[in-house]
Amino acid sequence: MTALLQILFDALSLGSLYALGAIGIALIFGVMRLVNFAHGDYISFCVFALLWPSIDAAAIVFAGQLPAYLLIPIILATGACLSMLSEVLVFRRFRNANPATMMIASFALGFVIKYTLLMLFSSRPKSIDLWSELALPVEILDARIPLLQVITIIITVLILAALVAFLKRTRFGLEMRAAAENFTMARMLGVRANAVILLAFAISGMLAASIGLILVTQTGTVDIQMGSSVMLVAFIATVIGGLGSLPGAVVAGFLIGGISVLMQVILPLEVRPFRDAFVYGAVIVVLIWRPNGLFAPRSAKQRV
C-alpha cells in the first residue's frame, strides 16, 4: 500500500511537469498552428534568471535569494516577457508561413536563447540551493512522500484551475478559445488576433517559468539542457492529447508521466535501462490507434 502510494505520487508529480509543459505548447498551437520548439529554452532561461545578474562560473544566487513572494512573480514575469518578446520579434513575421517554416524558426530562436545562456554561463551544470527544505518527506498514510511532490501536484492543480477559470469565465478566455477553434472566423467576428496571440504567449511563458522553478527546487541544479527534455515529452503529450486540445494535453501529460513511472517499476532489472524505448514505443502504439490524438478537437478533422 505504501509502495503503491509512493508510485502514485511519483507518477503524479512527474505528470504535473509534463502537463504544464504540454499546455504551454498546446495554447500556442491552438491559436497559431505553431509548434514552439523554443519552449524548452524558455524554461532554461527562467532557471538561469535565478542567477542573474551574476554570470560567474560558480553559481552565485542573486535573484534567487529574494523572498518567495517577490521571487515567484519576478520569474513568472521573466518567462512571460521572453515569450512575448519572441512573438513580437520573430513569430509575428511568420503569420502566413507554413507550419514547417514556423517550426524551424522557433527552433532557430531556441538555438539563439540556448547559446546565449551558454556563452554567459558556460555549459557546466551548477548546483543551486533554492527552497531545499521542501525536499523533506512528509508522512501520508505511512508513506514518506517528499513535501515537494505534494506541493508540485497542488500547484499544478491550482494552475490548471486558474487556467480553466480564465478560459471559461473571462472575455479574453472566450476570445482565446474562439481563436483556437477557428482563427479566421474568430477574427471576422471581431477578435483582436494579435492581442489574443500575445496573451497566449504570455501565459505559455509563465507556465514555462513555473516548470523551471519546480525543476530547480527538485533537482537543486541549474543546467542548460534541463528545459529540453521536459519540452520533448510535453510536445509528444500535446500530440497524443490531440493537437490544440487543452484537456487532452493535460491528460496525455499525466498519462506519459504515469507510464514512465510504471515502466520503471514493472520492467525487469535487465531491460530497465531501455525504459524510454518502451515509453516511446507506447507513444507509437497510441498514435497508430488514435492518429488524431485521444481528444482530437473537431477543428482538427480534415474537411473536403
Partner: peptide, 28 residues
Amino acid sequence: KILMRLSGIAASIATFAMLAVINTVYSN
C-alpha cells in the same frame, strides 16, 4: 509499414518516437 499509415503531425511525432527508441537502444 506501420508508421506510414499516419500522416501530418502524428507521423512526425511517430518518426521522432522511432528516433528516440533507436537512440535509447544504442545508448544502452
